[in-house]
Amino acid sequence: NQASVVANQLIPISTALTLVMMRSEVVTPVGIPAEDIPRLVSMTVNRAVPLGTTLMPDMVKGYA
């Protein structure tokens, strides 16, 4: 089972991601792979991401 990136807090729309905002967790459905966390830092989300939500590729500008 692959770990995915999960929001560690509410991430408001257009917020630049930082390490403290994300954690890795094995979830269903599978989202962005946890090993991509370093790549996600400073990318922005294009929607509000509630606490505990799995980050999907279409939620992060420039990721997909």
Rank of each mutant, 00 (worst) to 15 (best):
A16M: 11
A7R: 01
S42L: 08
P57Q: 06
L10V: 11
V49I: 15
G62K: 06
V49P: 03
M22L: 11
V5S: 01
I13C: 06
P38A: 13
L10C: 07
Q2V: 13
V5N: 01
A16P: 12
A3T: 08
I37Q: 04
A48R: 13
D58K: 07
N8I: 05
Y63W: 13
M22S: 01
V30K: 10
T15F: 05
I13K: 11
P57G: 14
T44G: 04
P50R: 08
V30E: 15
S42F: 07
Q9D: 07
P38N: 12
T44V: 10
A64L: 14
I11C: 03
M43A: 07
T44R: 13
I32G: 01
T18K: 09
V60T: 00
V49D: 02
L10E: 15
S4A: 02
T28C: 08
M43N: 05
M59W: 12
G52R: 03
T53C: 07
N1P: 14
G31V: 02
L40Y: 02
V45G: 02
A16N: 10
M56N: 05
T54Y: 03
I11F: 03
D36W: 10
E35M: 15
L17H: 00
E35Q: 10
G62P: 05
V49G: 02
G52L: 04
Y63E: 03
V60M: 04
P12E: 11
V26H: 13
Q2W: 11
V27I: 06
T53K: 08
A64F: 09
K61C: 07
N46T: 12
A34L: 03
P29M: 04
L55A: 01
L10D: 15
V60H: 03
V20I: 15
V27P: 00
P57K: 08
V41D: 03
V45D: 00
I37G: 04
A3G: 14
G52V: 03
V20N: 12
T44A: 09
P50K: 09
D36F: 13
K61D: 14
L10M: 14
V26G: 04
M22A: 00
A64D: 11
Q2M: 12
E35F: 13
G31S: 02
A7G: 03
L19R: 14
V30I: 12
A64V: 08
V26W: 08
A7C: 04
V30L: 13
L17Q: 00
D58C: 07
I37W: 03
D58H: 10
R23W: 04
I11Q: 00
V6M: 04
M21Q: 04
M21S: 05
G62F: 08
A3L: 11
P12S: 09
S14V: 05
T28Y: 13
V5G: 01
S24G: 08
G31I: 01
V27Y: 01
N1S: 14
Q9V: 09
I13N: 13
P38L: 12
S24K: 14
Q2D: 13
T53L: 09
G52E: 03
S4I: 01
L19P: 10
A64W: 08
A34Y: 06
I32M: 02
R23N: 07
T15W: 05
L10A: 15
V45R: 00
Q2C: 06
V6Y: 02
V41P: 01
S24I: 07
L17S: 00
A48F: 13
V27G: 01
Q2F: 14
T28V: 13
L19K: 12
L55I: 12
Y63S: 04
V6T: 06
I13Q: 14
P12D: 09
P33Y: 07
R47Y: 08
V45H: 01
G31A: 02
L51R: 15
A64R: 04
Q9C: 07
L55P: 00
P12R: 08
V6A: 02
V60R: 00
T54F: 03
T18Q: 11
L55H: 02
N8Q: 09
I37T: 06
P33L: 09
A34R: 05
V20Q: 15
V5F: 03
V49S: 02
D36V: 08
V49C: 06
Q2Y: 15
V27M: 05
A3N: 09
S24P: 12
L40G: 00
D36P: 00
I13L: 12
V27Q: 04
K61Y: 12
T44L: 11
I37K: 05
S24R: 10
A48S: 14
M59L: 05
T18W: 03
N8P: 02
T54N: 02
R47K: 15
D58G: 12
P33E: 04
P29S: 04
V30Q: 12
Q2G: 13
V27K: 07
T28R: 12
T18I: 06
D36A: 08
L10F: 15
V30P: 09
I11P: 00
P50S: 10
V6D: 00
V41K: 04
I11W: 02
R39V: 10
L55M: 11
L51M: 15
R47T: 15
A48W: 12
V20A: 15
T54V: 11
A3W: 09
S42T: 11
P33D: 05
P29C: 04
G62T: 06
R23Q: 05
A64I: 15
V20T: 15
P57H: 07
P57S: 09
A64K: 05
L51V: 12
V60P: 00
A64Q: 14
V30Y: 13
I32K: 01
P12N: 07
T18C: 05
M43F: 14
S4Y: 03
A3P: 09
I32S: 01
Y63H: 04
G52M: 04
V41C: 05
N1Y: 14
A3E: 09
I13V: 12
D36S: 09
S4L: 02
I37Y: 02
M22F: 05
V27W: 03
M59P: 01
M59G: 02
T28N: 15
T28Q: 12
P33G: 05
Q9S: 08
M21L: 05
V5R: 03
V41I: 13
R47Q: 14
M43L: 14
K61N: 15
M43S: 05
V26L: 14
A48E: 12
R47G: 05
R23V: 06
R23E: 05
I37E: 00
S42W: 07
Y63N: 04
P33N: 08
T28K: 14
P57C: 06
A7F: 03
V41A: 04
T28F: 14
V41H: 02
M59C: 05
L40F: 02
M43P: 00
M56D: 04
G52D: 09
N46M: 13
A16T: 12
V30W: 09
L10W: 13
L40I: 11
M43H: 09
V26P: 08
M21A: 05
V26N: 09
L55D: 01
T15S: 13
G31W: 03
N46W: 08
G31R: 01
A16F: 09
G31C: 03
